[in-house]
Amino acid sequence: RRPPAAWGSHTGLTSFAQLTPPGEAQRFVYLHQITSRFQEFLASSRQAAEERHSEAEAQLEEALAQADDSSAESAVSNAMDDTRSAFDQTMDTYDHIGNITESLGSLLQDIGGSHATTCADVTCSQYATCTATVHGPQCVCNDGYVGRGQDCYPPPGFLPHRLLEGMPDSQIADVDVSVFGTDHVAIVYRDLHDNGAGRIVVGRVHLAGMASMSPPEELTAPGEQAYSPVVAGNDVKSLVVVWRDRDRRGACWMRGGRLGSAGIRGADLAMT
């Protein structure tokens, strides 16, 4: 059978989509919506994997810092290497799947979107808004979100993370933060749950926006308090903390230290 005359000599995918009956276009839109939902699921799954890895890495670093013999240090170091290798492989898998679904989503959007004339014909993702452009209605990520319109999500670095893991009853005050080195951060605070004792938490920020944080370390002597603590660090990972031991008319105290000076592998967040 000869094709209808309206088909002409066009054989490209775009020309085929433009001449596809409306029912077919709706199928493309439906497939695009499914792909977008899968991309959102992929992004949330990746974020959860990054959070689990950060927690596991922090636990292993703590275990390594507490290891009391060479065999224990070797076992924990091997576990850390295996964990990081598995995490890298997992991230590579997420990247490959993400690239495939992103390409598929873009193709489906180009095909299905060619039939949309107004934003009423377009369904955007949760964090996107339809905008009229010279190419027709397009989904654009809202301010503060990243993606391609159909797979918008909050940047991992902007999502809240619990500072004191495993301490749901903790209450803190007088928080001060210092960023130092290339990717390190130090946080000092007054622990209201422990009679106002001064504590410090140090960590390393990763490219994904997550941070590996050390367990809280007490700055003050037992029974002492730390009001308005302030922390500062430099490029060689040295830190100094100052605080008052009373809310008013208190004496000023200072404590200094350096990260990773013990030379123990995996103990780069331990202060000396």
Rank of each mutant, 00 (worst) to 15 (best):
Thr123Lys: 05
Asn142Cys: 08
Val185Gly: 11
Thr117Glu: 10
Pro154Leu: 10
Gly166Ile: 03
Gln171Asp: 07
Thr93Lys: 15
Pro154Glu: 11
Gly112Asp: 08
Thr93Tyr: 13
Met91Arg: 11
Asn99Ala: 15
Ser106Met: 08
Gly149Asp: 08
Tyr153Asp: 10
Asp92Lys: 07
Thr90Lys: 06
Ala132Val: 01
Glu102His: 09
Gly98Lys: 09
Ala173His: 00
Gly105Ala: 09
Gly147Tyr: 04
Val185Gln: 05
Tyr127Val: 07
Gly105Phe: 03
Pro156Ala: 12
Asn195Phe: 10
Pro154His: 02
Asp95Ile: 08
Gly112Val: 05
Val179Trp: 14
Pro155Phe: 13
Thr93Cys: 12
Gly98Phe: 08
Thr90Ile: 10
Leu104Pro: 05
Gly113Thr: 14
Thr118Glu: 13
Met167Asp: 07
Gly198Pro: 03
Cys130Thr: 11
Leu192Tyr: 07
Val175Trp: 00
Ala132His: 04
Glu102Leu: 03
Leu163Met: 11
Phe158Ile: 11
Val146Asn: 04
Cys139Leu: 13
Thr118His: 08
Tyr94Glu: 02
Asn142Met: 12
Gly181Val: 07
Ser170Asp: 01
Asp194Met: 07
His115Arg: 01
Cys141Val: 12
Leu164Cys: 03
Gly147Lys: 04
Ile111Gln: 04
Phe158Gln: 14
Cys130Glu: 01
Tyr145Val: 09
